[in-house]
Amino acid sequence: MENDKKTMNFLTAKNRLNKSKTHWIGLFLGFMLFFALPLLVQSNHYILQVFTHALLLAALALAWDLLGASGSISLGHAAFFGAGAYASALLGLDLGLSPWATIPLAGLIATGLGLIMGLICLRLRGAYFALATLAFVEIPWVITDNWDSLTRGSLGLVGISGLPSIRIHGFHVDFGSSIVVSYYLIFAYFMILLGLVAFVHQSNIGLALQAIREEEIAAEAVGIHVNGYRLLSLLMSAFFTGVCGACYAHLVRYIEPGLVYGLHFSAVPMIFAICGGRLTILGPAVAAMVLYPMDQFVFHPLLPAGHEFLYGAVLILAMLFMPNGFWGRLRNAS
């Protein structure tokens, strides 16, 4: 009996080792594929643009899932995205700061908004938390819409500077100059965020969040500061969502309240995370890399109006048939 258990343990351990090996190989191949993508598509502007946005949305889904890891579902991440986009654009336009400074500052401003949201919403759980976040987006949105002297109101902002450039000893790369370099900058941000999310997941924070997600009362009983960790995950999530919004503003160079605060940027990261697998690290990113190009290359030409139909349909299917997302299902099956 004891022996059997040991063999079992050994087998699962070996299995896990093999699995993690394939995992690393897959990750490496994926990295190489995206690294070489500009060469593969011969710098085709449209395809690269779609994949730049896909990487940005993948980063957004990862940032959303930092909060998702605590078991909360947010329907209002557009609040942070929009605040980040507006903060970075306005700091650049009005104070003339370089995007290198405004993008992290935008993240901090989004974090401040996250703190406000946390104070209001963190006492809520489950469905009521989700409803509160849904309502919360309206506040920064309506304020941005009405504070004409600062934000130019509903007209939106034009003339936002492009992505920043690097100058070190004669070495000069301007990330806004062409789509290829923009692609690499967003790719670098995505890889950094992915590494960070993986680190958080295996750290004590990740363990605490998992405990809170599985059984909050038990987590509290073993001494985990439940609301502290939930606030921490919300703030991290808000910061990186704000940075995503700032990158978006400099990438597109035109923003308006309805664009950055609208339903789209609340819905899309949640849909990617849930379809990909809310409890996995890579799932949300993979879902973004599959669904967004599918939407742009297949559904957009077919249905110019209403192509985002796809996202809703995929979310419904995932909720009914794959509650753990397709990445989670793949992992359980293998």
Binding site: M270, I274, E308, Y311, I316
Partner: peptide
């Protein structure tokens, strides 16, 4: 979450 998808 499901009805959010339906809304989209």
């Amino acid at each position: 979450v499901l009805s959010f998808g339906v809304a989209v």
